[in-house]
Amino acid sequence: MLHRRIYQFFIIYLLGLLVLFSVKYLLDLSDYVIPGLEDLAQTFRTVFLRYVSDVVDTISVAVIGQVISVFMAIVVGVLGRQTTWFGSFIKVAAYNVQAYPIVAIAPIIFILFGDGFLSRLLIAAMICYFPILLSVISIMSEPVHDIEHFYRVTGRMRWQLEVKIRAFENLNKLTTVISGSATLAMAGTIVAEFIAANAGIGYSIRIALYQSDLAKILTALFLIGITLSVYQGLLEIAGYLVKKGWASH
């Protein structure tokens, strides 16, 4: 699972590079527009360690943001799963907040929380929370008639059991949503760093953009991609183990 994620990422990244280099050499563009292989390798060697540390910083914030988001989304999703006023209110709120561009909300967040760790965490959580919430609500509000019917007619259905049944029956979907939300958490953290933070890979990308240094950006993209692939692979393995554990009970 993990190795597949990694080699698939390598294929995608190399294909991307191939397209860029084809354009570069076909149009005879300078290294300023698209860096050459030598330039890219040199930049990679120069910034590798610093960028690895930046990506580790970013992924740490993203993971914490994602954990908070998943926890909150499950709690709120379970509460809002019924077709009550509260359930519909949560959905409306989620759809609305998702539509707001984070760059417009960011200044308010920075005024309230400064431009350190908390702001990055909050933005990461905001970006990945609502899609998870909507998925959790959608999963939790869909009855599994075949199984639930038995408990309902025998009068043994409780809300905890209902949640367990729906979660178990949709574990694959839940794992996919949680694994996919890692990308959103990472993107959210990078956006936050890009806008204002003083650390992380988003901050380094901002500096590279100021300096029109595409080689640095390509290096950063490689490290972000590989880190995310490993993290998502680990999440999938965790999901598989949880399902296996549940099934054996």
Binding site: L27, L29, S30, D31, Y32, V33, P35, D39, Q211, S212, D213
Partner: peptide, 25 residues
Amino acid sequence: LELGYAAFGVASADQVIRALAKGSP
């Protein structure tokens, strides 16, 4: 300019110097 999307442009001196350092015409 290099990509042919523009014939003229405005750039700061540091952009110009960085571009020259990377072989931009």
